[in-house]
């Protein structure tokens, strides 16, 4: 059935392709601070939301102590998607690169209890343990330190215009944020610790929710000619009914 659906999607997609909207100027011009404040409030008050973190450009290495890998084949982060449920539940599917190969791991965190499984690491069996020491799902929206707080610290905020995000109409706000404050946005994996980073926030034109955050992180000094790392965070399905529960785990390991 997946094939039929796929072919239908692709065939109809071509028909829909012609309906793409062009960028247009905002009318009337909304206040960027007010837009951002509304977006932050909706994120802060959400009972649940889905998120995607996608990295492109210069690779984001994941430091793993004690893992002896050949030079140039480090573990790097590529993509994560998951669901957050207030007050402190989170499920995530994370894709890593090991050299040129990609592998996926899953994490479920209920407060300070974590469950983890991965094809390579646990043979796809759920294990309970402290895999991200000190990580609490509630820190995603915590005040201070969480995503809403990070957004509230954006400087030099300006409205760039109205954008069409592949069928999603959004206001694009642009500003700069301190590198030390993006921990929650980048899952603690960003390299930069000082200076200001360019950030774009996209707010839905109708419901004023934050739908996308785009963060530009320069490459490290020793690779200054490389392209920057682009962090794209998509947030969707606000307040959808979700229940994140503990998977059947085999027991503690760490």
């Amino acid at each position: 059935m997946r094939a039929i659906r796929l072919l239908l999607v692709l065939a109809l997609t071509l028909a829909v392709a012609a309906c793409g909207g062009a960028d247009s100027a905002p009318q009337p011009t909304p206040d960027p601070q007010a837009l951002l404040a509304e977006g932050i409030t909706q994120l802060q008050d959400a009972t649940s939301f889905k998120y995607e973190v996608d990295v492109s450009g210069y690779r984001v290495n994941v430091p793993i102590e004690g893992l002896d890998l050949p030079e140039g084949t480090g573990v790097s982060f590529k993509y994560a998607s998951g669901t957050f449920q207030v007050p402190d539940r989170l499920s995530a599917r994370v894709q890593f690169r090991l050299g040129v190969l990609s592998t996926t791991a899953e994490l479920v965190a209920l407060g300070d209890t974590q469950y983890f499984r991965g094809e390579l690491l646990t043979g796809n069996r759920w294990l309970q343990g402290d895999f991200l020491p000190g990580f609490l799902p509630s820190s995603l929206v915590a005040q201070p330190g969480g995503v809403p707080h990070t957004l509230s610290t954006i400087r030099d905020l300006a409205l760039v215009g109205r954008r069409d995000l592949d069928g999603l109409s959004a206001y694009q706000l642009r500003g700069r944020v301190e590198a030390g404050r993006v921990f929650s946005l980048t899952l603690g994996l960003s390299r930069a610790t000082a200076g200001l980073l360019d950030i774009d926030v996209f707010i839905h034109t109708q419901n004023k929710r934050v739908v996308r955050i785009s963060l530009v992180e320069p490459p490290p000094d020793w690779a200054a000619d490389s392209e920057p790392t682009i962090w794209q965070i998509n947030i969707s399905e606000y307040n959808a009914p979700v229940t994140i529960t503990a998977p059947d785990a085999d027991g503690g390991t760490s």
Binding site: L6, V9, L10, L12, T13, C19, K50, D166, G167
Partner: peptide, 28 residues
Amino acid sequence: TLNSAIARFYRQVLDEPPPRLEERYLYL
């Protein structure tokens, strides 16, 4: 253009978040 069209189709016709970019590559 093609990837954007797929995303648009998911949002406007299926009313679902589109698949991630790399998945859309595979579909194409």
